[in-house]
Write a protein that binds this DNA or RNA. Structure first.
Lengths: 195, 195
DNA sequence: TAATTAATTAAATTAGCCTTCGATTTCGTC
DNA sequence: GACGAAATCGAAGGCTAATTTAATTAATTA
């Protein structure tokens, strides 16, 4: 079987694992559970992946790459800080919406990465967060955003809101991911209160 | 040794477990790890607690009770919806700030409860969320809040922001929990944008 | 068809898990 | 100092975990 088929089976393993990890958590998910989902024996998994953790690494770092790509696109644009923040939020939501399962694992299970992967992952994350923080700080400097709100609190509140989306968003609902991104951006930037 | 001493030792076990569960997750935390933290053998733990899960039950349901108590106080007050929401947010933050470790476990590890505890826990949570949702809906009805934002999205964004606080808040920082609650309420109700 | 490669498996390895049990130590009180 | 209760321990039971190995089956290619 050629490389494509190999990848395809490996992808199946990783996608099934994502669903399992999301449901039960990484540590509580066994390779037997995973094998059963695919209708094979646990030992067979090791023809496709090197270890349980390799699966987690794939899920975490592939998502991280998507987020970075999305943010880099936004940073290129020459728009106001408010608009940049809006676009960043919408991009983040769209990346997550493309794979809600992997997003949930990315967010909740990355801590089970071993070193040095965990360190690398956290460095990527802090970099990503800081680039959003820079947008907020820029907005505050030019007077678009309030200066009264602590910047760390602002960016952490933002990420909390974004990152929990996979926990409650129903992709079959009336509101599509782009609308969701718009509404989220509206709520976080303009608030709940009527003007 | 009298009951007080017994409780005290049990509390030690539960508090150590909370720190462990927070750090490594429930499933990845072993009773040996926990015993080692306390300087005893794993078998000795069972003089104080019935099982590993009993510890998790304590942590989850004790926190849940605190949240309910706080919200019930707020609901009694006769104030505008905005104000009620503000008070609810501040109360929620204050309850979490009293025990950030237990809060983190409450939020991230409750899914490892077995039945029927998991079901009971989720019922408590959905009830709590719905009572906040009712405040937001009331605010929208009387024209204090925008009607354009989806109510489920609003309340979930709110809870995401609140519930992730234990992940990043540094209790030794300049900003104290009450200030934090005020700023969070301000950001969520009024938004980031300068008026 | 024969040769090669991929996919799967059963069995074994090694290690860890939670929990129980009986015996022992610690400790406050008489 | 002796007694009884609480706390702790060592050892073991019973299970489940991830992974490796060697053998087998299926699929592809030449």
């Amino acid at each position: 079987m050629e490389a494509v088929g190999n990848l395809s089976r490996k992808e199946q393993v990783i996608r099934s694992a994502a669903a399992l990890f999301r449901e039960k958590g990484y540590a509580a998910s066994s390779m037997r559970d995973l094998a059963q989902k695919l209708g094979i024996e646990a030992a067979s998994l090791y023809s496709h992946i090197k270890s349980k953790e390799e699966i987690l690494q794939h899920l975490c770092f592939d998502m991280a790459a998507e987020f970075r790509k999305s943010l880099a696109e936004v940073e290129k644009k020459e728009v106001t800080a408010s608009e940049k923040l809006r676009l960043g939020i919408i991009g983040h939501i769209q990346v997550m919406a493309k794979d809600l399962t992997a997003s949930a694992v990315f967010m909740n299970e990355h801590r089970h990465l071993s070193q040095p992967f965990l360190r690398d992952f956290l460095l990527l994350r802090i970099n990503y967060i800081n680039r959003f923080k820079a947008i907020i700080e820029e907005g505050a400097r030019v007077g678009e955003f309030k200066d009264s709100i602590d910047k760390k609190l602002a960016v952490m509140t933002l990420f909390s809101s974004l990152n929990w989306m996979p926990m409650w968003y129903d992709p079959s609902s009336k509101i599509d991911p782009t609308q969701l991104g718009h509404q989220l951006a509206d709520m976080l930037v303009n608030g709940l209160k009527k003007v």
